[in-house]
Each structure stands twice: as C-alpha cells, then as structure tokens.
Simulated scan of single mutants.
Amino acid sequence: MKEKYTAVILCGGKSSRMGFDKSKIKIGDKFLVEITAEKLENIFDEVVFVAENKYKFGNIKYTVLEDLKKEYGPAGGIFTGLNYSSSPYTFFIACDMPFVNLEYIKYMMNFTKEKKFHVIMAHNGKDIEPLYSFYSKDLVPYFKRGIDSGRLSIRKIIEGTNIKYIPETIKEKYDNSLSMFTNFNYKSDLDNIYGKYTQD
C-alpha cells in the first residue's frame, strides 16, 4: 500500500515587516500560496493551509485549518497540521517561501521511508530550515508539551529527537542558486517574486 503524504503551508504570522498579510499576496488572480500548493500537489496526496481564520482565503479549493493554538507562531501551526494529518510524515513550508523545489523535497521524502527519524530537515549554511521539513506524527505530544509550557522555539521542541539533517552539499546539487529557501519579509523583496513568476 502506497504511503500517503500531506503538505501543510503555514499562513499565519503578523507580517509586521511587510506591512500587510503576505499570505494574501496575489500573482494575477491567484493567491501566491495557491500557486505554491499547486506545485506541491505534484508529489503530495493532499495540501492544506493553516491560518488563524479558516475563512481567510474565501472560496478556494484547499482545506484551510484554523489554528488549534492561536498566537503560538510556527509551533502552533505545526501542532495543528500534525493533528489534522493522517500521514505518518507531513511536510511543512512557510507561505513566504514560493520557490518550491520538488526534486529536493522528494530527496528528503526518501528518508521518511526508513521510519526512524522524527524530523527530516535541511541545513542552510550554518542554519537550519524548520519550515522546509518533514515532521513525524509522533511529534504531536512534543509540540503540545512545548506550547503548554510556553516554549515555542521549534529547535527546543524537537531537541533530543532523532533528526536527519540534509547537508548543504545536497542542497547545492538540486539548487545552485539556493533560491528554494528564499523568503520575503519586505516590500522590496516582492520584485524578486514577481520577476521570477513573470519569467516563468
């Protein structure tokens, strides 16, 4: 029986640096997150959004989950997504990371088949990318415990679990420009986004 995989796009956040809700940016007549979701549908059985309000995007075809734990940032979004997902592993990505690299994600996905990791996460230089990662359903109690205790750092929540880090050399093999981890926080960043989609 084929393993089912779910992808979750986190659409919360204050977007204070942007000055408006970046999850509602549109390219043409579509939300940018819808375009991201359409790409993810090529390799995932289901793509859902997590937001502070399930009616946030109006009448779209994707399921929008309302945060079970509001005002808890990405940790709350991951907790909500893992609770909903029926998949053993769920991929999480932020709404401000539109340059999806499906080949790289499929590479990460292969490690879920070993069923021995709690998290499959990418290294990005000296940093990590917690919102371009696979999380095991087994982590639900870890996130609940972290949220209940006010410990919202994803690094702290998953501390001590079995994490597979994808080395940067692999990332460079799939994306020399490293654009898959590009996110946008300021209005000036949008030129890069619009330029990329105009070229495509």
Rank of each mutant, 00 (worst) to 15 (best):
A37T: 12
G146Q: 01
L178Q: 12
N110Y: 03
K2E: 15
F57Q: 09
K156M: 10
P88T: 10
N176C: 11
Y104W: 15
K164R: 11
T198N: 06
E168I: 07
Y107T: 02
E3T: 13
R17A: 07
F111G: 02
D175W: 07
G12M: 06
K56C: 05
K187Q: 15
K54Q: 08
I35T: 11
L32R: 02
I166L: 05
D138G: 00
F184Q: 05
G77M: 12
L68D: 13
K187P: 13
E168R: 10
Y186M: 12
L32E: 02
G146I: 00
T90Y: 09
D29W: 07
F181Y: 13
S133T: 15
P88E: 15
Y174F: 15
T198G: 02
S177F: 03
Y72H: 15
K115M: 09
K2W: 09
L139H: 00
N185R: 15
N192H: 13
K144N: 04
I163Y: 08
I128S: 00
F117I: 11
N42L: 14
N192V: 15
D67H: 11
D127G: 03
S188Q: 15
F20Q: 13
S188E: 15
E3A: 04
S188F: 08
P130T: 00
S133P: 04
M109A: 08
L32S: 00
V47W: 00
K137A: 00
D67Y: 07
Y107V: 01
I147H: 03
F184K: 09
S177G: 06
Y62P: 05
K70L: 12
F143A: 01
